[in-house]
Structures are given as C-alpha cells and as structure tokens.
Nucleic acid binder design. Structure first.
Length: 404
RNA sequence: GGGUCCGUACCCGAGUGGACAAAGGGGGCUGGCUGUAAACCAGCUGCGUAAGCUACGGAGGUUCGAAUCCUCCCGGGCCCA
C-alpha cells in the first residue's frame, strides 16, 4: 500500500480546502480503507466536465484502495439544493429522478472504478424518507437560524425579498445526515458544497461518530468563462455529448481559461500541465494550437483514442472549409406536402420553429440549398426539385431532404 | 388573521385607459470579421403569405377602446398581530 505521506500528497493535490489535514492523516494512518462520500443530485441528466473534477479526485481515492460511496440524492432532489441559487428549484417527479439517476450511474463509469468492493451506490431516500418528525427536530436542533442564514445565497435572496422555503433551510441537514448514515470518513465536493459538507461533520460528531474530513475541489468555469459550469446555466460540456459538440464547445472557451481546463479536466499530471501552460505563455505554442490540443485530449478521454482527431477534422471541414459534415441527418417529408414554400420547408425540416422564423432566416441570407444561397422565402419548390438535396441553415445546421 | 405592495414575452425589467406585439438589458439566432462556435460590429428575436389572430398571473366586468380601471380567485414580498 502507498505510504501515508504519499497518499496525502496525491489526495490533497489540486484541492481547495482540506478540513482538516491532520484528521485526514490520522484516518489514513489507521491503515483501513476509507469510506469516501460524494453526493450527486439527479436534477439533470448529464454529467459535465465541471463535475469530473471532483470525480477524478474520488477516483484517486479508489486507486489508493479506498471505497467510493456514491450517494444518489433522489430524496434531496425533491427539495433542491439552495446552493448558489436565486430561486427555489422546481420539484422533480419520481420518474425524472429515476431516469437521471440511471444516466448518472452509467456516465460515471467512464471515470470511477466499478470493481465490486471499490464502490457503493446508495439512494438517500432509503433513510431520508423514513426519518420521523422527532428525528428531524433532533437534527434541526444541531444548528441555528443565524448559522444557516450566514450563507450568501440565503442572505441575498432574503434581502431581495425572494421566497425561501423552510425545506431549503433544512437541506444542509439532510445532506449531513447522509454522512451519518453511510459513516463517511471523507466527503468530497466542489467549493460551493463546503457549508453543506461541514454540516456532515457536526452531525456525525453529535451522533458519536468520528467527523468526516471535508475536501473541496475547484469549480470549473463554464463556456462563458465567468460563471461556474452548471447544467442549469447551460454553459456546460457533457461528457456523453457527441465528439463534434465537445470539440466545438471547447474551441469556444475564452483563451484565458485554457490553463484551468488543462489542469482540471485532462487528468494529466501537474508537471505535464505546467509544461503546456509554459509553452503557451512563452508563445511557443499558439493559442489556437493549444486549444485544439485541449479539445482533442478531452474528446479522446470520453470517446476513445483517435476520436479527438476525427472531431478536429470534422470541425475543420465545417468551420474552416465551410462544407457540410460527413453525415447529415436526413429529414423525410411526405410528397403530399409539396409544392412547398422555402420558408415552410425550413420549418417542416425542423431548422426553424415556425414559418415566420424560416422566412426571417432566408431574408437574412442564412439559408442555402446545396451550397447555393436562397433569397426568396415565398418561392415554391416541388418534391422532384428538392428530393435528396442538402438544406443548410447558418454554419451549424443541416438537413438532407428526403421525399417519401 | 389584519394592512400594504407586487405578478409583463426565454430571463430581468419599463409601461398605469388609445400612438403597445409592448422601451431597455441579458440570452438566443443570422450576417460580417477572425486562429476559434472567442472578442468585436450590424440585424433579427409571438403566430399567420396576408387581412388578421393570440398575448402582460387566472376568471369575469366597466369602456367605442384595457397590460393599464373595478370585482373575485391564485401566487409572492414586506409590516402588524
């Protein structure tokens, strides 16, 4: 087994908070596999690059012989984590939660070790749906309103006069109770989870358990380069997204963000990251080349070796040469629809949400048929004229029209 | 429970009887430029070929005419209890 000192070095690298390192050392020194908790709220169906930061940290624990305890927050998802939120989350149905949870577990396999014994996956409804009012009150007496309200997100909402549901105030307690239930030795999370995770420490202490070590990892900025990557902000790159999508999205991140992306998402050793960053700064590696390298690396990571190169070729074909992608989706239109105006054709093929919008796109010069720009939205085409032709909207949307 | 203020398009937000399909910003889209799906600049952004239709929390009402006035209902903030 790796020495305690080496483990400490690996496990604390790239983290923001470790509370506390002394505790972690003590726990590691006991020589037993630690139970390392990570909670996932199944509020959306995709795992994104930002979340892989903490997943990779969890994987490091697994590789050192510790046990990953993945908690699917199916119960807490019904309340909604108020962290960083300015509004109450809408409650999810059981079906949505189940579907999201299934997708999560599937996607997480590309990062975590699923060898039996290395991972446990549990749902927090197992215990949270059973706790009675007495139990809830006991938990609530462990904290005070002042402590809960210290949090920025609540303070802000309170000052703004936005509604805050009491159930949201209890959220950190539920998450803390999870730690008690799974007897967590360590809990991982993004820096925004610090408050919630510290609650776990306190509740464990009150229940006579050794308090968990809380480790936080940095939050990755999303495509906009400012706000954290999140599903609800729509600025994310999903690990299950198509190679072309991932490549393109990565190419669009602000240049200044590249070092962070290399450091947090590639899984590279710090020395390798430092070397790349240095060559960018010295001008040896052009920004665009660096970004391509990043994009290839990430696509390879989630779609297999070589997928990055293919995605890059495709990207060049589309955006550099301006030609159509190799596989354009076919769109079948029944012959009864013809003759049809170009505006309506666009809407029928799903490239516009309405005829009106199709009309606008054509008038703006954004529509091509077989590479030829069309200008009159009212022109009618017959089935024979359009069958098999390539319809293009803007730089990023195509449909091959098939008449049946 | 009482009082008071509020609810506007994807989001924020102006509008308080006609000139309102509704200012402004964000987002999104299209075009230009570019190493880039970045940045920047310009245009577009309810539906309908059109006449017109539908839309300012919901339902009624007043009026020639309502997002704007009245009644009730639903949702929210604040103050008092």
């Amino acid at each position: 087994m790796t020495s305690v000192e080496d483990q400490l070095k690996i496990l604390t690298a790239g983290t923001v908070d470790v509370i506390s390192e002394v505790d972690l050392k003590k726990k590691l020194s006991a020589g037993k596999p630690l139970r390392v908790k990570l909670g996932i709220d199944p509020t959306a169906s995709d795992i994104h690059l930002g979340f892989t930061v903490v997943l990779r940290k969890l994987r490091q624990f697994q590789d050192l012989g510790h046990t990953a305890v993945l908690i699917i927050g199916d119960f807490t998802a019904q309340v909604g984590d108020p962290t960083g939120r300015s509004v109450t989350r809408p409650p999810l149905t059981q079906e949505q939660v189940d579907a999201h949870a299934a997708t999560y577990v599937e996607q997480v396999q590309s990062i975590l070790d699923f060898t039996p014994g290395r991972i446990e996956i549990v749902r927090n409804s197992e215990w949270l749906s059973k706790i009675d009012m007495g139990g809830v009150l006991r938990l609530m007496s462990q904290t005070t309103l002042a402590r809960i309200l210290e949090r920025d997100d609540f303070t802000k909402r309170y000052q703004e006069g936005s509604p805050i549901s009491l159930s949201e105030l209890v959220y950190p307690l539920m998450q803390g109770w999870d730690s008690v239930q799974v007897r967590a030795d360590v809990e991982l999370g993004g820096t925004d989870q610090l408050f919630n995770n510290l609650m776990g420490r306190q509740l464990q202490g009150a229940e006579g358990q050794a308090p968990q070590v809380v480790i936080t990892t940095p939050l990755l900025e999303g495509l906009d380069g400012v706000k954290k990557m999140s599903k609800s902000l729509g600025n994310y790159i999903g690990i299950a997204e198509a190679p072309g999508e991932q490549f393109g999205k990565l190419m669009s991140i602000p240049d200044a963000l590249m070092p962070r992306y290399f450091a947090l998402t590639t899984g590279w050793l710090p020395e390798r990251v430092a070397a790349v960053v240095a060559s960018i700064e010295s001008g040896e590696l052009a920004p665009v080349a660096a970004k391509r390298l990043l994009a290839r690396t990430i696509v390879d990571l989630y779609h297999g070796e070589g997928a990055g190169k293919s995605a890059e070729d495709e990207f060049d074909r589309i955006f550099k040469d301006g030609s159509a992608p190799t596989d354009v989706e076919e769109f079948v239109i029944t012959s009864g629809e013809f003759p049809i105006t170009l505006a309506r054709l666009l809407a029928t093929a799903g490239l516009a949400t309405s005829n009106k919008e199709g009309r606008r796109k054509i008038e703006q010069g954004g529509v091509r048929i077989e590479g030829e720009k069309v200008t009159d939205p009212d022109v009618e085409v017959t089935a024979e004229e359009i069958n098999g032709k390539l319809l293009q909207l803007g730089k990023r949307a195509w449909a091959r029209i098939i008449v049946s």
